[in-house]
Nucleic acid binder design. Structure first.
Lengths: 321, 321
DNA sequence: AGTTAGAATGTAAACGTTCACATTCGGGAT
DNA sequence: ATCCCGAATGTGAACGTTTACATTCTAACT
């Protein structure tokens, strides 16, 4: 910065002003300074700026290391939203199973001086486990309940409700469910939507199996249902498991959708071309991300509470019985 | 830091030493200082440290915003590798189609003072388009050719070769290919592997269709092949397109694998349960990420060149004709 | 006891900005 | 001509560390 100042013959402060408050500096001076900046290839050192202003324009993103569709998409969406807000994203993945890992994640973010953090929290107790140093920075939660912080998520219960309602409208009388693992917000909400839709439709409770989100666990759950239950439709908590269920049904001599209707959740890229094409729901990651970034960029802390954003229902062959 | 020093009755410098060169400070003093650090909840300010040392322990990751399986997995793997190396990752996604976006991405990373950068480069000219300020920091390339920088990638050509060889060993005489889009390194390598395997097996060139990695484009390509070519096997450049191809084949009255053998690439989570289960190859993202992080952490610049890491061949029903 | 090497600790300056305040410069009103 | 005000620019200090060097202490050697 001093080099630029010297080249033009002004003080370093004038250069600083050209960068931060251009309207305060005379036009002729400003142009000369800008010219010198270009010629000398000067780049403001944002580390030094951060030291003085205590703002880094960095936003921390803490995500579970699961590698599942939802969290991954959420991270990508958050990066885009942050970029559009002029911030950069520091990504820290956490294995919720490793003791101390959540604390370590916060530690890293705090040390790098992030201005705020977004927690991608598909696990129910993930936020709590993170035990963040209270109110040291603005925090928002994406895709789950937020405890003491503002949270934004897709209305998965509502989408599940609609999907089950759709299955029923296509003639299903006994709708089974393959749920996600206990302790996941997504799993619980989708399961609730299923229960509520059945109850509201005056249908009896359906059979329940539980997987771990993986395609293999879906296949396993499908076999389990076939062995133990009567059903003419299955609502599966995600697409990968849904494909596993379909596989089990086909192996069991059932045809989808002729004998059993199936609906999944997530709209993974493959689900539009599988045999059969999969009825599912797509989350609005972009809207969730925008809301989270806005929340952590806000000057004053936002009040806690969960705001739900609508999902997109996608009807395809697997439920067109 | 001063607070801690005052609490213990030493100078700030001693506190600094406890943190950076503990062996230089007497054990009794060190313990008292560490105690005070804990009690006061002191956290070293890495921004200030970065200002003085010109090292931020931040590594930039530039990835295309495509949302495809490969780049996404690569980013997750890079974060893990960086974390294990004591660094944090600043993620910047780039839309290669937007003019100026690559420059903007570099600009962001430079301003935040990252110590190095890894470019996830599945597009052939992505690295070149980035036009990085030459040698301003160590750079490595993940999943593609690196131009002037060290690059690490899965041996996709080799894996494709093996997959096609496998199809031939199962009796295929005419192996078609659905390739990825022009300009992608992955697409080119997989296509080359296919060509070379056919040539080495003494078989004629196969029919070629080209998709855009999406499942829908795979279905489209499958129909195209059915209409215009004779074949008894298809090697598809990724799993999503492979599922699309299978869909088209089934709709066209062909059975997989009875009439046509199919192999994909990527081992997406669903491919283990689809009907039929998909033969495919899995990339070694972890190894690529480790190599890249090691390269940008190295003190002296590594020589350019592409190092290939082996893929895992996964044989399943779709090729078991 | 005096000297000295080494260990342990302390002090001053610097990293590249921004903030708060001080100064200078023009020009219009008195 | 004098005064004063706003616009434009300059100066000093500070942000929280680390680096380089200076000092003090300890204990072992002559």
């Amino acid at each position: 910065m001093n080099d630029v100042a010297r080249a033009v013959g002004v003080s370093y402060q004038t250069v600083s002003r050209v960068l931060n408050e251009p309207h305060l500096v005379k036009e002729s001076t400003r142009e000369k300074v800008e010219q010198a900046i270009r010629e000398l290839g000067y780049r403001p050192n944002s580390v030094a700026r951060a030291l003085k202003t205590a703002r880094t324009d960095l936003i921390g993103v803490i995500a579970p290391i699961t590698g599942h569709f939802g969290p991954t998409k959420a991270v990508c969406a958050l990066e885009r939203a942050a970029r559009e807000a002029g911030k950069a994203v520091v990504l820290v993945q956490v294995d919720p199973g490793v003791p101390g890992a959540p604390e370590d994640a916060w530690e890293r973010l705090l040390r790098h001086g992030v201005d705020g953090a977004v927690v991608v929290s598909p696990c129910l107790n993930f936020v709590r486990a993170l035990r963040p140093p209270v109110h040291m920075m603005p925090i928002a939660v994406a895709g789950g309940e937020g405890g003491d912080w503002p949270a934004y998520a897709t209305d998965q219960r509502g989408a599940a409700y609609e999907l089950v309602q759709h299955l029923v409208s296509r003639g299903a009388k006994r709708v089974a469910h393959v749920a996600g693992p206990v302790g996941w917000w997504d799993a619980r909400e989708r399961e609730r939507g299923w229960r509520e839709a059945l109850a509201d439709a005056g249908l009896p409770e359906g059979a329940l199996a539980r997987g771990d989100w993986s395609a293999e666990s879906g296949e396993e759950s499908g076999r389990e249902l076939l062995a133990n239950a009567e059903f003419d439709a299955v609502f599966v908590a995600n697409d990968q498991m849904a494909l596993g269920v379909i596989r089990a049904l086909v192996d069991g001599g059932k045809s989808v959708p002729a004998d059993v209707l199936v609906a999944g959740f997530d709209d993974i890229p493959a689900s539009s071309v599988t045999v059969p094409r999969l009825t599912t729901a797509g989350q609005n990651f972009a809207a969730v991300a925008d809301a989270c970034i806005a929340a952590v960029s806000a000057t004053r802390a936002l009040s806690p509470g969960l705001e739900l954003l609508p999902a997109a229902i996608i009807l395809r062959e697997s439920s067109e019985g």
